[in-house]
Design a protein around this nucleic acid. Structure first.
Length: 288
DNA sequence: CAGCGTACCTGTAAGC
DNA sequence: TGCTTACAGGTACGCT
C-alpha cells in the first residue's frame, strides 16, 4: 500500500534537497547525514519497490552509479507526502524536497526504530535498476505473498534449522514480512506451538503454517488498505486489523474462538507470545 | 557458524 | 494526584 502510494507520487521526480532532522533516522547509513544527502540530491526516482518490511526508491543520479533510498519503517514510521508549507510533524525525521516544488516526502517516526539508508545497487544495467536488490537488504527473503516465493525451499530450510517455529517465522532471512503479531496469529490458525522444533515439521505442517501466514497477511492488507485513500501515504496498516480479526495476539484471558479455552500470554524473546493452550499444546521437545 | 539474548527509543497504561 | 515501572515492537550486534 505504501509502496503503491510512493510509486504514484514520487516516480519520475528529481530530489532537490534533503534535510535530516534527526541523526538516528540515518544511523545505519555509514556516511552520516551529510553523505546521505550528498548522494541523492539531483537523483531521479524510477519507482518504488518493496521486499518484506523494506521499501526502497531506486534513483538515477547523473554521472553516478544508480543508488537506492532504502527505508525500514520500524513500528511507528510513516512516509508522508505533504505540501512544502505544511507544518512540521512532531516526529518529523527526514524531509525530501523535489525540483518541481510539489509535495515533499517526509519520514515521520515517533519511536525511531525506523531507518533510512542510501545504498548501492550491484551490477546494474540501467534498464534493470528496478529489478535489483539494494546491497543492504540482499539477505532478506521474499514474503509468502510474493509470486516467486518457494514453499518447498522454505520447508527444506526449516528442516535444516534447529530452533522453534516462531523464531524461524520472525527470521527475515528465511521468510520476510512476519512480525510478532502475525506470527502469533498464524500459529494459532495453524494450531502449532511457538516452540515446535522446526526440524520435525512435516510437509503438511509447513503448508498449514504458510497457508495461515498468507491468510493473516491478506486480511491485514485488505483492512490496512483503507488508510491510503487520502492524499498521503499512510503506513499504519495494522490499525484496522487490530480491532477485528485478532484471534490470539493480545487476547490473554479471553476465550479461544475455536474451543473456548482461555488464551494465555507467555514471555518470548523479551516480549510476549499468545496462544490457546488446548489448540496449541506445548510439544514434548520444545525449542524457544 | 548457528543460535540466542540484549540494547536501542518513546508514549501509554498500570501500579503504588 | 503524581511519580515510577513495565511494556510494545524489529533489527543488529555481541556472546557462547
Amino acid at each position: 500500500m505504501v509502496r503503491r502510494g510512493l510509486e504514484r507520487w514520487v516516480s519520475g521526480r528529481t530530489v532537490a534537497d534533503v534535510e535530516v532532522g534527526h541523526p538516528r533516522a540515518v544511523r545505519r547509513h555509514l556516511g552520516g547525514g551529510v553523505d546521505f544527502t550528498a548522494r541523492i540530491v539531483g537523483g531521479t526516482a524510477l519507482g518504488a519497490r518493496r521486499r518484506g518490511k523494506y521499501l526502497w526508491l531506486p534513483l538515477v543520479v547523473p554521472g553516478q552509479a544508480p543508488v537506492a533510498v532504502v527505508a525500514h519503517l520500524g513500528m511507528s514510521g510513516q512516509l508522508l507526502l505533504r505540501p512544502p508549507e505544511a507544518p512540521f510533524e512532531k516526529h518529523l525525521r527526514v524531509r525530501f524536497s523535489f525540483t518541481d516544488r510539489g509535495r515533499e516526502l517526509r519520514f515521520v517516526d515517533q519511536r525511531t526504530f525506523g531507518a533510512l539508508v542510501v545504498d548501492t545497487i550491484d551490477d546494474v544495467v540501467a534498464a534493470h535498476v528496478l529489478d535489483q536488490l539494494p546491497r543492504s537488504i540482499a539477505h532478506i527473503a521474499r514474503d509468502p505473498l510474493d509470486p516467486a516465493f518457494d514453499d518447498d525451499a522454505l520447508h527444506r530450510a526449516l528442516r535444516r534449522r534447529h530452533t522453534g517455529i516462531k523464531r524461524a517465522l520472525l527470521d527475515q532471512s528465511l521468510v520476510s514480512g512476519i512480525g510478532n503479531i502475525y506470527a502469533d496469529e498464524a500459529l494459532w490458525r495453524a494450531r502449532l506451538h511457538a516452540a515446535r522444533p522446526t526440524e520435525t515439521l512435516t510437509r503438511a505442517e509447513t503448508a498449514r503454517v504458510l497457508g495461515a501466514v498468507r491468510e493473516v497477511m491478506t486480511a491485514a492488507l485488505a483492512q490496512g488498505g483503507t488508510s491510503f485513500d487520502s492524499l498521503y501515504v499512510n503506513v499504519n496498516g495494522q490499525s484496522g486489523y487490530f480491532e477485528r480479526s485478532l484471534e490470539a495476539y493480545g487476547r490473554a484471558g479471553a476465550p479461544c474462538r475455536r474451543c473456548g479455552t482461555l488464551i494465555v500470554r507467555e514471555p518470548f524473546m523479551n516480549r510476549s507470545s499468545y496462544r490457546c493452550p488446548r489448540c496449541q499444546p506445548r510439544p514434548r521437545r520444545a525449542r524457544l
